[in-house]
Amino acid sequence: MHLQHFLLFPFLLGLLFAPEIANACAVCFSSSEETLEAFYFTTIFLTLLPVVMLFTIGYWLYSKHRKT
């Protein structure tokens, strides 16, 4: 797994920020900057929320089970 993180990370960084124009982008040009940000935010929010919740509950149950 370490190898893979090591290789992918620069990739991600480079691709996220390097290209100046994103042309086939519905949310970039014909609507406001705020819409773009809202889409970014909600995407990240919806993506991470269940993972965080399930991990928390899973860890809590696991620790409860270990105690008994």
Partner: peptide, 18 residues
């Protein structure tokens, strides 16, 4: 990793550059 790299090169060419 090879697939991702190859894909992103093509994708950037088609959709991200004008």
């Amino acid at each position: 990793v090879v697939i991702i790299a190859a894909n992103i090169i093509v994708w950037v060419n088609i959709k991200q550059t004008l």
